[in-house]
C-alpha cells in the first residue's frame, strides 16, 4: 500500500493531506450513493413481496436497472421554483437535507481502523450532525410558501426535537457502559466479556444488557428519519407530501436520497452501538466488514418490513410515544445502568 502511495505523495507535495482526505471521502460516499439507489429497489421489491406483488421487473433483468432509470428521469426533469417562494432558501433546503446525512459518515467506522476520521467524540459528532438534519425540512417547508409544506415543516420540527431526547438518553447508556465516545472503542468494548471469551460473542454485545435502549434507539431512529409509521411529516394522504410538495426533479431527488442515506446511517449506528459492529457473532468466524454490512442490511430490512406492516401513527400519538413513553423509560434506564455499573454485579469491569 505504501509503495503505491509514496509516488503520489511526492507528486502532490503539500496538498497531499487534502487530496488523501478527498479520496477517502469519495471512497465512502460513492458506494453509499450506490447503496441508496439500490435500497429504493430493495424497498420496492420487499414491499411488493409482502403485498403479494412482483415489484419493479421491467427495466433490465429482474428490474435491476430501475434505480438508474429513476435517477436519469429525475435528473432530466425541470426544477420548478414557485413564484411566491423564497428562491435562495428554496434551493438551500434540499442541500441542507442531504449534507448532514453524508457528513455523519466521516466518523462511522466500517472496520477496525477503517474510518475517515477517528475522533474521540465520534458519538457526539453523529448526534450533533443528525440533529441539524431537521433544517433541510424546515427551510424547505417555509421557503415553498405553501400551506402543506409549512404544515410538514411544523410537524418535522416538533417530531425530530422530541425524539432526539430519547435518542440522546439511549446513547448515554451506551457511552456509560463503554466508557468512551469513540465509535471504534465502543465496538471493541463489545468484544470483551464473559460470553465473548467462551466464543459466543453475540451475547456480550450491548443489545442484551441494554435491551430497552436498543428498542428505543431503533424506534426513535425510525421517527428521526421520518419513516413509516412515523411519516407524519410527509403524510401523503393528509398533507400530500409535506415539505416536498413544491419540489421537482433533482431537488426532490435530494430529499429522497437524504431519507435513504439516513436510513442506512441509523441502521449502521444501531449495528455499531448495539450489535457489535464488525465483530463476528461467534468465536470461530473471523471479524470483518461483511458482518457490519449484514447487520446493517438486516436493520434496513426491518425498516421496510415495519413500513409495510404498520399504519401511520396519528400525530398526537407520535408525540405521546416520544414524551410520555420513551423519555421516562430512557431516564429511568440511565439511572439503572449507572447504578448497575457501580454495583458489585457490574459486568463491565
Amino acid at each position: 500500500m505504501d509503495a503505491i502511495l509514496q509516488p503520489l505523495e511526492t507528486f502532490f507535495g503539500s496538498a497531499w493531506p487534502a487530496v488523501w482526505a478527498l479520496v477517502k471521502i469519495i471512497v465512502v460516499v460513492a458506494p453509499l450513493m450506490g447503496c441508496v439507489a439500490y435500497l429504493t429497489y430493495f424497498e420496492r421489491k420487499v414491499i411488493g413481496a409482502i403485498q403479494l406483488r412482483v415489484g419493479p421487473n421491467r427495466v433490465g433483468p429482474l428490474g435491476l436497472l430501475q434505480p438508474i432509470a429513476d435517477a436519469v428521469k429525475l435528473l432530466f426533469k425541470e426544477v420548478i421554483i414557485p413564484s411566491g417562494a423564497n428562491k435562495g432558501l428554496f434551493v438551500i433546503g434540499p442541500i441542507l437535507a442531504i449534507a448532514p446525512s453524508l457528513a455523519a459518515w466521516a466518523v462511522i467506522p466500517l472496520g477496525d481502523g477503517l474510518v475517515v476520521a477517528n475522533i474521540n467524540a465520534g458519538l457526539l459528532f453523529v448526534l450533533a450532525v443528525t440533529s441539524i438534519e431537521v433544517y433541510g425540512v424546515i427551510i424547505a417547508g417555509w421557503a415553498s410558501n405553501s400551506k402543506y409544506a409549512f404544515l410538514g415543516a411544523m410537524r418535522a420540527t416538533a417530531q425530530m426535537v422530541s425524539y432526539e431526547v430519547s435518542l440522546g438518553f439511549a446513547l448515554i447508556c451506551v457511552l456509560l457502559v463503554s466508557k468512551s465516545l469513540n465509535l471504534t472503542d465502543i465496538v471493541t468494548q463489545q468484544g470483551q466479556g464473559m460470553f465473548a471469551e467462551r466464543g459466543v460473542g453475540f451475547l456480550s454485545w450491548n443489545w442484551l444488557p441494554l435491551l430497552p435502549m436498543f428498542v428505543v434507539y431503533f424506534v426513535s431512529g425510525l421517527a428521526e428519519t421520518n419513516r413509516a409509521p412515523f411519516d407524519v411529516v410527509e403524510g401523503e394522504s393528509e398533507i400530500v407530501a409535506g415539505h416536498m410538495v413544491e419540489y421537482s426533479g433533482m431537488a426532490f431527488a435530494l430529499f429522497f436520497l437524504a431519507e435513504y442515506a439516513n436510513m442506512i446511517l441509523v441502521s449502521t449506528m444501531t449495528s455499531i452501538l448495539f450489535l457489535g459492529g464488525w465483530l463476528s457473532p461467534v468465536g470461530f468466524l473471523p471479524d470483518g466488514f461483511h458482518w457490519l454490512a449484514l447487520k446493517t442490511a438486516f436493520f434496513l430490512f426491518v425498516f421496510l418490513w415495519v413500513r409495510a406492516t404498520f399504519p401511520r401513527f396519528r400525530y398526537d400519538h407520535v408525540m405521546r410515544l416520544g414524551w410520555k413513553v420513551f423519555v421516562p423509560i430512557t431516564l429511568v434506564w440511565v439511572v439503572v445502568v449507572a447504578v448497575w455499573m457501580m454495583s458489585p454485579l457490574s459486568i463491565w469491569k
Partner: peptide, 25 residues
Amino acid sequence: AEFLAITLVMVYVGAVMVLFLFVVM
C-alpha cells in the same frame, strides 16, 4: 475544545434554534 464545540451545535443549533425558527416562522 471539541466537546464544547459539538455541544454548541447539538444544543443551540440542533434544538434551541429549531424552536426559535418555529416561533419566528
